[in-house]
Design a protein around this nucleic acid. Structure first.
Lengths: 158, 158
DNA sequence: ACCCAATAGTACGATATCGCACTATAATGT
DNA sequence: ACATTATAGTGCGATATCGTACTATTGGGT
């Protein structure tokens, strides 16, 4: 296909490589987001799933504001997401005994089950799509990305 | 901090590892998105930037629908994004000489310049944040992620 | 004990996303 | 050549995102 302009040379400077990496990460996130959402029931979005997944993985009982910070989204957005989850009985919002202003976000059995089901649905799909992408390579990159995420995460509250 | 439920064991099955990887990718994308947007001028969003960046990297002159497919977003969303870019004179939408229904998306000098400026702004920021994340590691993962992206991308139009 | 700056969460409005329906043009079959 | 089906893009409406402003509560300083 003809292009009126050819791609630029990849002139790499200081953080340039990391920028390229993050760009790639963004594209993959976009693609896998589309994939995941197509497997979610009941009009749930990626945000709903991510919140549920977060709670299963790290333990529930966080406050909404903690979760907003963990995902770097505005607290109003998190409030909306949690409202959607609560309406579907996938979480419960309990008053925070330690802080009269705050709440605690608690998983319900239904929430836990839905997250489990979603993963059961999506995992074979992924395995089918990515037969060539070996486990070992995935595991290796994953380790590196966790390190990267930690760096990104901790340097925000400078 | 006390949690009412402890984290689950990481029981890894078939595509499970890749799922974990994609989850990590999603989190990083979210964090770096917040970072990038805080450095964009004139209320531009990640979508605007991504479109500009795509055109600089792969050459402009694509049709809107091609770009929508490349990013896996609905064509109406892409239409909206492009309208925003055109309003700011960062792209031009020309009629497609090869197809009377279609258009071609062309970068303007302003668009190219803004993308360049954004990268100049963000790159040192990244370099500052990630001094520990060595170039070599970044480059290595990047290669792997490109492979992963290609797999994800090609298996969608099955 | 009291003030006051800081914080958790919500209300509301502006803008963004995206599905559905529509128009215009193209491609395909006969 | 013409009818039929498919495709590019837009208009519109429902829902989502997120900034600003607000209320309720907390905690630190005096």
């Amino acid at each position: 296909m003809t292009r009126s302009n050819m791609p630029e040379e990849s002139a790499s400077a200081e953080g340039q490589v990391v920028f390229e990496l993050l760009n790639e990460v963004g594209i993959i996130a976009q693609l896998s987001r589309a994939l995941l959402e197509s497997h979610l029931e009941d009009g749930l979005t990626i945000h709903h799933f991510t919140a549920l997944n977060h709670m299963v993985r790290l333990g529930d009982g966080q406050t909404p504001i903690e979760m907003a910070r963990a995902f770097q989204v505005p607290k109003t957005s998190m409030s909306h997401t949690l409202a959607g989850l609560e309406k579907r009985d996938l979480i419960r919002l309990a008053p925070n005994p330690a802080d009269g202003r705050g709440k605690l976000v608690l998983l319900t059995d239904a929430g836990r089950a839905l997250r489990e089901r979603a993963i059961q649905n999506i995992t074979p799909e992924i395995a089918k799509m990515i037969p060539l992408f070996e486990q070992n390579e995935a595991k290796r990159i994953w380790q590196s990305l966790r390190k990267l995420r930690t760096l990104l995460d901790s340097s925000r509250d400078k």
